[in-house]
């Protein structure tokens, strides 16, 4: 089973993931502010990407009064069923990690859905700080695999 692995000490703070995410989820408009993944600088050279952890016992799922948050059995990601959601926003309050939001511009609850099984953020992360894999690689960043999208000017 593949998962999204986040290795903060590889993150170079380029925010390609935020851009990739908002493009992948563009509803009416695209903007990094729409991204489900967010990169936080914690020191001048240290960055932490934060995205939904797809908790096994998720507070958002527990709190949702309309069963609008449903786990996709294939990707294990919790997805929003917009036909059920009543925008009560209780999920956004209850998530202990702050990984589910109401976006007023698209008037929808947004959260990471691992792009249905091929997360754009991981595809565009040039430094393997984000990986969609069975298990994360360890140690120094390996050479990019053929076919992997790498933005040349961003390679650390």
């Amino acid at each position: 089973m593949k998962r999204l692995f986040i290795t903060p000490d590889r993150c170079i703070g380029c925010r390609a993931c935020e851009l990739a995410c908002s493009f992948a989820h563009a509803v009416a408009l695209t903007s990094p502010a729409l991204s489900r993944i967010r990169v936080y600088p914690v020191a001048s050279d240290r960055f932490v990407p934060v995205a939904c952890l797809q908790c096994e016992e998720a507070a958002c799922v527990k709190v949702c009064p309309t069963q609008a948050l449903v786990r996709n059995p294939e990707t294990l990601a919790i997805e929003v069923d917009h036909t059920r959601c009543v925008k009560c926003m209780m999920c956004t309050v209850a998530c202990p990690f702050g990984n589910i939001h109401l976006d007023l511009r698209v008037d929808q609850i947004v959260k990471c859905d691992v792009c249905g099984g091929d997360p754009a953020c991981a595809r565009f992360c040039p430094s393997l700080a984000l990986e969609w894999a069975e298990r994360p690689t360890v140690g120094p960043v390996p050479k990019p695999e053929p076919g992997r999208v790498v933005l040349p000017f961003l390679v650390p």
Partner: peptide
């Protein structure tokens, strides 16, 4: 706590 503040706290905890 709101989602934005929580997400920041998560980053601090991951760090």
């Amino acid at each position: 706590t709101c989602d934005a503040c929580r997400k920041k706290q998560t980053a601090t905890a991951f760090a």
